[in-house]
Design a protein around this nucleic acid. Structure first.
Length: 113
DNA sequence: CTCGTGACTCCCC
DNA sequence: AGGGGAGCCACGA
């Protein structure tokens, strides 16, 4: 055995975490990056999200924002208002591209309650 | 193979 | 308090 493989791609690892985000909750790029072992590779997480549109099952990328609770990736949803719209549908209020009471909606995969 | 870029984050001044 | 720079990893040209 040398290597075995199945080493899931970096992207796959990101998707696995993002898919675990419960309905009505959000998380950040940094948290995800840290969760997969690369705390400073938050950029990659966002990049993975960009590619997520081509991934199945669909990844709730709209639940992923930056550490300030700002919808930095909204520009990549095709429709600028789409990301905010999806969050609103889940009961998350967004003002000026920023999630209201962000900390309350924040979900940390490492923090099991 | 080398270079550049990217939906971020942290540290320093 | 605000601005600037470096770090991180993967992927396309």
């Amino acid at each position: 055995m040398k290597k075995n493989k199945i080493e899931e791609s970096f992207f796959e690892r990101v998707y696995s975490v993002v898919r675990q985000i419960p309905y009505g909750k959000v998380t950040t790029y940094g948290i995800i990056a840290r969760c997969i072992g690369s705390p400073q590779a938050a950029r990659m997480v966002g990049w993975a999200m960009n590619n997520s549109h081509n991934v199945i099952p669909e990844v709730p990328a709209h639940r992923v924002v930056n550490r300030n609770g700002i919808l930095t990736g909204k520009n990549h949803f095709g429709e600028i208002e789409l990301m905010q719209k999806l969050l609103n549908e889940e009961g998350i209020e967004v003002v000026k591209d920023q999630i209201v009471d962000f900390h309350s909606h924040l979900w940390d995969p490492m923090t099991i309650y």
